[in-house]
């Protein structure tokens, strides 16, 4: 198997649901090992793109390749290469966190699912909750479990569909940290989001999906150049509500640090 430099390649993708033309020719490419953010408002078609790329839906026209495999013709190989974390944390509520992980490890046909599960529980700070039913987890814990389930079998490409929607600020930062870690290990991450700052903080490259087409695609710097050059203004820097919230709830530093690091 060759390992092309582009992990995801989408060309002229079209999809309609009855009369609604959701995708009207979407093109983009994602470099291996990078974080790519698909930005768009609700109903822009982000989830449809993810579903086509993860072989859950077939496109009406155009082509899409993941890890060098065509999603239509080589669906089985694509599924071997990917992992999907859907919009709603898809964990089994009746099973415990550990049982959820063991199940996915078994379905990925890995040896020693128990050890894999224990390692991931530890990595995502879920060891203590591991034997509890997932139904008792908080939103952040469920998301962590959800992402942990996606990492099993180390798929080279991971899709995260609105990974932080509905999470509190701390849980959001945890998810961001996990995503950065993944990319650091060479995993290609395609994430969809409607939060501009999420794309700004996380992504190496950002594409804006609007009315079924990609209307902008580039690095943050590229996108900034679409506007007239920056003017220098002096503004008093007030802490954001998020800074305040994190400071008084005891997780101070993390958000501000990350912001400064990105800005510098």
């Amino acid at each position: 198997m060759s390992t092309p430099a582009t992990a995801i390649e989408v060309r002229g993708l079209e999809k309609s649901y009855r009369e609604v033309h959701v995708l009207r020719g979407v093109d983009f490419a994602v470099a291996r090992g990078s974080i790519f953010a698909l930005l768009g408002s609700n109903g822009a078609g982000k989830t449809t793109v993810v579903k086509i790329l993860s072989t859950l839906l077939s496109a009406d026209a155009g082509s899409a390749g993941v890890n060098g495999f065509d999603v239509a013709a080589q669906a089985a190989e694509v599924r071997e290469s990917i992992s999907l974390t859907g919009q709603f944390a898809a964990v089994d509520e009746v099973l415990s966190g550990r049982e959820n992980l063991v199940l996915v490890a078994k379905l990925r046909h890995l040896k020693d699912p128990g050890t894999i599960a224990d390692d991931l529980l530890q990595r995502f700070a879920l060891t203590e909750a591991g034997s509890r039913k997932a139904a008792t987890y908080s939103g952040g814990m469920r998301r962590r479990l959800d992402i942990a389930m996606s990492l099993i079998g180390r798929p080279p490409v991971i899709f995260l569909d609105e990974p932080t929607t509905g999470l509190d600020p701390e849980a959001r930062l945890e998810v961001w940290r996990a995503v950065r870690e993944l990319a650091g290990q060479g995993t290609t991450v395609l994430l969809t989001t409607q939060y501009l700052d999420e794309a700004e903080h996380l992504a190496d490259r950002i594409a804006v999906l609007h009315e079924g087409r990609i209307i902008a695609d580039g690095t943050l710097a590229d996108l900034r150049q679409l506007l007239p050059p920056a003017r220098i203004e002096y503004v008093e820097k007030q802490p954001t509500l998020e800074d305040v919230f994190l400071a008084i709830t005891g997780t101070a530093g993390t958000a501000a640090d990350q912001r400064t690091r990105k800005d510098s």
Binding site: L56, I82, S83
Partner: peptide, 13 residues
């Protein structure tokens, strides 16, 4: 409804 079906379907099973 819960999305777990989609998770399984996107896996090589």
């Amino acid at each position: 409804q819960s999305g777990i079906f989609e998770r399984f379907q996107s896996m090589p099973i």
